[in-house]
Every structure is written in structure tokens, then in C-alpha cells.
């Protein structure tokens, strides 16, 4: 241990600077009653050699410029490399979720809207290509496998909207038609009813503000009820007397048809009764023209490979 004598030249928060009588400067630990100009006796134990990182380094001008440039560069790079959201597809089966895609139809993100969607997405591993059409088909199939899409809850509600309000509604309709064709081309082992609607960008914002999926928001807005739900509502609301009035109708049809297909079959009877559709073929019907399109997707039979109509009238429902 060595003793030194120095004059206190500067007092800082954690230490003081002293000048020794031979012109050397030392940092010493700060103690009580230190005064500028006072002579102090200190030992080598009191010295602070390279004791701290200068506080001012962050506020140094060069450092600030470097940090600012780095941030700007990072932002520019992220803007270049980040996929740009182009459109949103909402899928409601219950699970309800929203899929955001870029212009090349690659999925940017999938946003669950309820807990069922959380469960569904937990079980789902997104395909490598992140292709929207494949993702929609996968999610519908997985919903069926997980018991969300059943013969009772058979509606798959799809809604599309472009994110940029400059893109017209016709873009949204075209986008939806792409999705419908992709579903049409896909083979399913189960039946379901597809309810689709193409919306405007404004609806997407309103849906978000109300915490609803785009599809649910559109149905609420248009006061639209999907076929199965319409029937359920009728069943619960109508009195027994009304039910008795409907009984004289063909009972065989009522028991065999799944809910929601009644109307279509009636139409088929009237117009196209002699030509039953082969399984997998899509029947289109517009509940409210230009708003919602209802499509029945039938299960593909294992022996109907070519879809040539040999098994006419096939499908689970029959």
C-alpha cells in the first residue's frame, strides 16, 4: 500500500479527481466532506483504475449519428424485405380467424379471433409455400377432423376484403372467385356449405373496430343468416301449430335432407329434377344477389375418380 497526497480538482458522482504534487492525476473514491482545492491523503486502495463506463458515451454525437443511421437502415431493410399485406380472408366455422395475404397470395399472418381458433391454429402446421388456397383447404379439413365442422354445424363462411381502400370491390370479388375455384378443385371427404361474400376495405376496418371477423361483421350488417342457422332459428321460434302446418309436406325428404339444403332441393325439383348433380360438383345459389353466395360442397366418393357423373345423386347427404 502506498500513500499519496493530492489536491481535489474535480468532484463527480462516484469519484473525485486529484492532482498530485508531481503533476499526476488520479481518480479516487468519493467520500464525505470532499471539497475542491482541499489536500487529501489517500492510499493506492482508494484509487479507481478504469472504474466505470463513461455515462456520456451514449450521448456522444458520433454515437447518436451511428445509432440513428442504423435505425433508419433497419427500417428501410425491413420495409424492403417484409411482405406487404394485400388482402384479408376471414374464415368462420367457429373457429373464426383472419388470414392476411400478400399480392402473390402468400399467407403473411393468421389471426385467431376466438379460443376455438387458438386451438385450431395450435394444431395446424402451415405448409412451406404458405399458399393461401392450400392454407384454406387445410384449415377446413382440420376443422372437420377436430370436430368443429360437423353435419349440424356445416357452414364455412368466407369473406374477403382488400386492405388498401384504393383497390376496388371488383378486386375483392375476383379474389374471392379465385378462392372458390381452388376449393371447388379440391377433393373433400365430407360435405359442407360454403357461404362467401366479397367486401370492401371499409368493412374490414369496421369489423376490426367491433372485434368481429369480417364474415361475421358482414352477416350482422346485411342481417344475413346462413341456411342451417336459419332453419334452427325457425325451429326454435315457430310454435307447434306452425310445425303441424308444415308436416303434410313430404316427410321422407325432411328426414333425409341435411338442414339448409331444403331450398335447393326444391329448386332442383322444379327446374333440374331429372339431372341430379354428381358428387363434388358445386351448386351455386345466391341468397341475396351480389352480397352472399351459398355453395354446397359435396364429398368426393372414393370410386368417383374422374367426376364423370357415373354415380349420379351420390354424396353423404343422400
Amino acid at each position: 500500500m502506498r500513500a499519496n497526497k493530492g489536491k481535489i480538482m474535480e468532484i463527480l458522482d462516484s469519484h473525485a479527481v486529484v492532482m498530485t504534487s508531481d503533476g499526476h492525476f488520479n481518480r479516487i473514491k468519493r467520500k464525505e466532506s470532499m471539497r475542491i482545492g482541499a489536500d487529501v491523503l489517500y492510499t493506492s486502495n482508494d484509487l479507481m483504475e478504469k472504474p466505470y463506463l463513461k455515462k456520456s458515451w451514449f450521448f456522444n454525437f458520433k454515437t447518436q449519428v451511428a445509432v440513428a443511421m442504423f435505425v433508419v437502415l433497419a427500417l428501410v431493410i425491413s420495409q424492403i424485405t417484409m411482405p406487404v399485406a394485400y388482402a384479408v380472408v376471414s374464415l368462420d366455422i367457429n373457429p373464426s380467424l383472419e388470414i392476411t395475404v400478400d399480392e402473390s397470395r402468400k399467407v403473411v399472418s393468421i389471426n385467431p379471433i376466438n379460443t376455438e381458433a387458438d386451438e385450431l391454429l395450435e394444431a395446424y402446421v402451415i405448409n412451406e409455400n404458405k399458399d393461401l388456397h392450400a392454407v384454406i383447404n387445410d384449415l377446413i379439413k382440420l376443422s372437420n377432423a377436430m370436430g368443429y365442422l360437423t353435419s349440424e354445424n356445416h357452414n364455412v363462411i368466407l369473406a374477403t376484403a382488400m386492405i388498401d381502400s384504393k383497390n376496388s370491390k371488383s378486386d375483392s370479388i375476383e379474389f374471392m372467385s379465385e378462392i372458390l375455384s381452388a376449393i371447388e378443385e379440391t377433393e373433400y371427404t365430407f360435405d359442407f356449405t360454403l357461404v362467401s361474400t366479397a367486401r370492401e376495405a371499409g368493412d374490414l376496418k369496421s369489423a376490426k373496430s367491433e372485434g368481429l371477423s369480417l364474415g361475421r361483421y358482414a352477416m350482422d350488417k346485411e342481417n344475413f343468416m346462413p341456411p342451417g342457422q336459419m332453419k334452427k332459428l325457425e325451429e326454435t321460434e315457430e310454435t307447434e301449430a306452425v310445425e303441424q302446418e308444415t308436416e303434410p309436406q313430404n316427410e321422407e325428404e325432411k328426414t333425409t335432407l341435411p338442414p339448409g339444403q331444403e331450398k335447393k332441393v326444391e329448386e332442383n325439383k322444379n327446374t333440374d329434377n331429372e339431372k341430379p348433380l354428381p358428387p363434388g360438383q358445386v351448386i351455386k345459389e345466391q341468397n341475396k344477389p351480389s352480397k352472399f353466395v351459398i355453395t354446397e360442397k359435396k364429398a368426393t366418393q372414393p370410386n368417383d375418380n374422374n367426376g364423370n357423373g357415373k354415380n349420379k345423386g351420390g354424396g353423404k347427404g343422400n
Binding site: 500513500a3 467520500k31 489517500y42 482508494d46
Partner: peptide, 22 residues
Amino acid sequence: HIPFVIYTVSSVTGRYISTEND
């Protein structure tokens, strides 16, 4: 042992010894 005395006294008082006449 002067440095030792300086250090010990300083650690008790909590301040530096200002001069030798302290």
C-alpha cells in the same frame, strides 16, 4: 505503515484525511 494508518483512519471517519495535521 503511514499508508496503512491513513487508510484505516479514513475508513473509520468515512472521509479522506485532509492534511498531516488532521
